[in-house]
């Protein structure tokens, strides 16, 4: 027992100094005025029209990004889990390779690609095709988010699928289910935990990002992350920034709560 406590020491230190204390500071700043008195004003600031718009847009884009990631990732994870070891490790490598590069660089790369006179448009005009002008629009932001966060959706789903008992699938086939029925009744419900953690791992960073919207939105598209960033850096208003962060945190936690509840309702009910 004593030894275990000793081993837990570093983690305890780490989580206190880098999670608990910062969180505590945010709560403190968020719920106080500059003179130190208690207030809810900072958090209530979310209701100004431009902040609400930013929050709404963040929710929408994060939702879209999560949805697109899910639609792309699930089939991919299926293919990966079913292909032979050598094949799948090659495909996994293709997916992991970009992740070795800094995510800022990857986003910057998209900026260069999508620019008005960027690589893609140059290529399109060379082929006498119409140009695409999505840089500095929400579309570019969603594209960047999907590109950056897709692996976080693929990996958890791939992980549950690869661990799925093959004989469970065989048993379903044996009992008369065709491949579609087997997928709907066995594979999909069995993979829900992976889908849930994939959604969490994509939705949360997508909801809170400000770098991607900065780089691909060109400062024209404001997400809630940008609003908070600006409040901290340009306005130097730590109280207001923390208050807004608190609201965002509550939104994220609430969204995850809904997702998890939906999951429980799913697996508990009849099939």
């Amino acid at each position: 027992m004593k030894r275990r406590r000793l081993l837990a020491g570093p983690y305890l230190f780490w989580s206190v100094s880098f999670i608990i204390i910062p969180l505590f500071l945010i709560v403190c700043y968020g719920l106080t005025k500059a003179d130190g008195g208690f207030t809810l004003e900072n958090a209530a600031h979310i209701t100004t029209p431009e902040n609400l718009k930013a929050l709404g847009l963040s929710l929408l884009l994060a939702f879209l990004c999560t949805l697109i990631c899910l639609v792309l990732a699930y089939p991919l994870a299926m293919i990966l889990s079913q292909s032979s070891i050598s094949q799948s490790s090659f495909i996994v490598l293709i997916f992991i390779l970009p992740m070795w590069m800094n995510f800022l660089l990857r986003t910057l790369a998209w900026q260069t690609l999508l620019e008005k006179n960027g690589v893609i448009n140059t290529f399109l005009s060379f082929l006498h095709l119409p140009q695409i002008n999505i840089i500095n629009t929400p579309y570019a932001i969603v594209l960047g988010m999907v590109y950056d966060f897709l692996p976080f959706m693929v990996l958890p789903i791939y992980n549950v699928l690869i661990k799925l008992d093959k004989d469970m699938i065989n048993a379903a086939r044996d009992l008369g289910a065709n491949s579609a029925q087997t997928f709907v009744k066995i594979i999909l419900p069995q993979s829900i935990p992976g889908v849930i953690s994939g959604i969490t791992m994509v939705f949360v960073p997508a909801m809170t990002t400000f770098v991607i919207s900065d780089l691909l939105g060109g400062g024209k598209v404001l997400l809630i992350g940008n609003v908070i960033e600006q409040t901290f850096k340009q306005g130097s208003n730590w109280h207001l920034g923390s208050g807004l962060s608190l609201v965002l945190m509550i939104f994220v936690i609430a969204s995850m709560g809904i997702v998890n509840k939906y999951d429980k309702g799913q697996s508990g009910g009849s099939f």
Partner: peptide
């Protein structure tokens, strides 16, 4: 099946 293979979500 040798290892039962029951559907664990049902």
């Amino acid at each position: 099946f040798q290892r039962y293979a029951l559907f664990s979500h049902m």
